[in-house]
Design a binder for these strands. Structure first.
Lengths: 149, 149
DNA sequence: TTACTTATTTGTAATAATTACAATATCATA
DNA sequence: TATGATATTGTAATTATTACAAATAAGTAA
């Protein structure tokens, strides 16, 4: 259920979240760039367009959007929190070499377990790490096998 | 395959990782306390016993042990990295109210997907968030339903 | 045991991400 | 357009983590 930008606006109104200019810009950025950006990336890019934008506002906006259920916070590793539009459940694969995060579809309900019967589950995340095909190929070409990174 | 402390020592020797006193203490701590501690917790507790221990050493030890494959770094949320002994694959459930992290067993191979056929997968993590039974009960008792936290 | 080599540990200082907060600006609605 | 509520800014504080050089300890071989 990929939402249109207009649908998202309606959702925000329903939840009584004000559609401020900057907030919409952050949302729009995520809708346009499916790159799981960091706050830094979002700030740097939007700052060019909106010189008065502050990093604090980016944080505030992302948190507001996350609370509204429109944005998902991805923390695969510490020191780099990333943000993604909330769409249908999917897993994230992070390449340890180039750092790119790939989506992959999973049937997340298969993972449920009866050990958690009495728990209220609100969010399920699946994170894989490894090496992506492009990097695997480069490593092969360079003929070195220390894939320490 | 829960490893005994002795097994772990052998593993370390095999990988040419020196069994220094502090390093072993950190490992022992994790083996004794299955609470997914933060660096802070490990440091605070061990510091009582070993007054000369520095926090840097805790970081160093944990990273060395993680590279050796004995310790798993858990980053469910930013701002709190936690550490766990590497045992058979399992998922982590974090209660959003009390912060406790619970283990649960999963058949992690069920999650694999043909979309990642050309990826080299090195690590699979499954993180759930929600409310644990104890907290659910307390919320009920207190008769308030704003489970914002 | 002793000396030697190498790796670990320490402590301090730097870095970087995130948050707190008060002042200011903007929005939504009547 | 006036009003009250909320968003945004900017600075400063906080916190987790890392860098690095000096001191220390471990492992090894004579």
């Amino acid at each position: 259920m990929r939402r249109s930008f207009e649908d998202m606006k309606i959702l925000l109104r329903q939840q009584n979240i004000k559609l401020s200019h900057h907030r919409l810009k952050v949302l729009e950025y995520l809708a346009k760039h499916h790159i799981h950006p960091t706050v830094e990336q979002i700030y740097d890019d939007l700052h060019k367009e909106i010189p008065t934008l502050s990093k604090t506002t980016v944080y505030n906006s992302l948190h507001a959007l996350a609370n509204a259920g429109l944005v998902r916070i991805i923390t695969i590793e510490d020191n780099e929190t990333r943000y993604d539009l909330e769409v249908e459940p999917h897993g994230h694969f992070k390449c340890e070499r180039c750092g790119i995060i790939f989506n992959f579809t999973i049937d997340i309900d298969k993972i449920s377990t009866n050990e958690l019967n009495h728990f209220e589950i609100r969010e399920k995340s699946v994170y894989f790490k490894g090496i992506c095909p492009t990097c695997l190929q480069q490593v092969k070409d360079n003929d070195y096998w220390r894939i320490g990174i």
